[in-house]
């Protein structure tokens, strides 16, 4: 058990190290001189050298890497010259919007995937099954940003059901008092039902656009697992005890079908937290994704570099948590088997 944990921790560290190396190297080989971008085209060579020195870019490459890594883990993520603020303060300011969208989309995606997988497998329903599989094909094959535009055209422009790309609340609306920085929760805490409703409406389209690909993936995975598990003899045994069909399915098929999908669920959550750049851009969502998009356009290296490493850390942490979760809830991982006696 502790060996498993140690092994996982080591693997996580290796993954973060690899990502940091990649981020560091990519930023070094990309065209564009950071000092030139900061000072503008008219800067003198002396001033450029000065800035390069400030940035540490005149040091040997290993020393540069060491500074980069140690700065990252001490929270010193550099300074954004385009926004005139420290990267860490920008991230702290922007992260709640991304977290809220990611969590909301995750709940929506998983909920829909579970319900549809159940509908298509519990009892013999060929038509429902065909519809679910068809929908998952479409979700799988459509690029999220294209789907985002499509959703906006239908639900905002034509039907006027949901708000357009204006961020987390309507323009000019005041934010709920900040407690968790998640508008859905904060508005409820403050009793502002109207703000809650608006925030929900604003989040719906981006959450769907963000989640549709992962939804398609999860619904297929769950469907396959449920089909496989519901053919297991222990389901027949449970039914043979006199359990009603649904009880046997709920108690014995569901846990066994869901357990192996935890890993994928972890990947999906990691992806939502770190990979919503284009979706945030389309919906003008004030999260990390929009920040990074602007930073890429303006060649603001400090932000991009920190983002790459941060998303790697998020991914690794979420997956580490999933691995540890297995050890808690799966008895086959938690308790060693007794060799047959």
């Amino acid at each position: 058990m502790s060996r498993v944990v140690a092994y996982r921790l080591l693997g996580s560290l290796a993954a973060i190290f690899g990502a940091s190396l990649l981020a560091f190297l990519i930023m070094r080989v990309l065209p564009g001189d950071p000092a030139r971008i900061i000072l503008g085209p008219l800067a003198t060579p002396k001033a450029l050298a000065e800035v390069n020195h400030q940035l540490g870019l005149d040091q040997p490459i290993f020393a540069q890497y060491w500074h980069y890594i140690s700065d990252f883990f001490t929270g010193n993520w550099g300074y954004s010259y385009t926004l005139n603020a420290s990267v860490s303060s920008l991230f702290v300011e922007r992260f709640p919007a991304t977290i809220e969208l990611a969590l909301f989309s995750f709940v929506l995606t998983m909920g829909a995937a579970v319900i549809l997988a159940l509908l298509s497998t519990y009892r013999h329903r060929p038509v429902t099954d065909a519809i679910v599989r068809g929908a998952s094909y479409i979700g799988f094959g459509t690029p999220p940003f294209f789907l985002a535009l499509l959703l906006l055209i239908i639900f905002f422009k034509s039907l006027h059901w949901l708000p357009g790309p204006e961020g987390r609340l309507q323009v000019g609306a005041s934010e709920p008092p900040a407690v968790t920085h998640l508008f859905l929760i904060d508005s409820l805490l403050a009793g502002q039902l109207n703000t809650f409703w608006e925030s929900l409406r604003h989040m719906l389209l981006p959450a769907i656009a963000l989640g549709i690909g992962s939804f398609s993936f999860m619904v297929r995975l769950l469907r396959a697992n449920l089909l496989e598990v519901s053919r297991e003899p222990f389901i027949t045994v449970a039914r043979g005890k006199g359990l009603p069909r649904w009880t046997a399915f709920r108690r014995h098929a569901l846990p066994n079908a869901f357990l192996p999908t935890l890993t994928s669920a972890g990947l999906v959550l990691g992806e939502f937290l770190a990979g919503s750049v284009l979706i945030e851009r389309v919906f003008d969502w004030p999260g990390i994704g929009s920040l990074v998009f602007e930073a890429i356009v303006k060649q603001d290296f400090a932000i991009v570099q920190a983002f790459i490493l941060l998303s790697a850390v998020i991914f690794v942490l979420v997956n580490l948590m999933v691995d540890l979760l297995y050890a808690v809830i799966d008895p086959r991982v938690r308790i060693p088997a007794v060799t047959s006696a």
């Binding site: 449970a238 039914r239 014995h252 066994n256």
Partner: peptide, 23 residues
């Protein structure tokens, strides 16, 4: 449901798969 298990019971072939592994 009220007959199975009470009046007629079932034992299956493979004990490795006849029990739910997570209960």
């Amino acid at each position: 449901g009220s007959v199975r298990g009470k009046e007629i019971a079932l034992v299956l072939q493979d004990p490795a798969t006849a029990l739910d592994p997570v209960k």
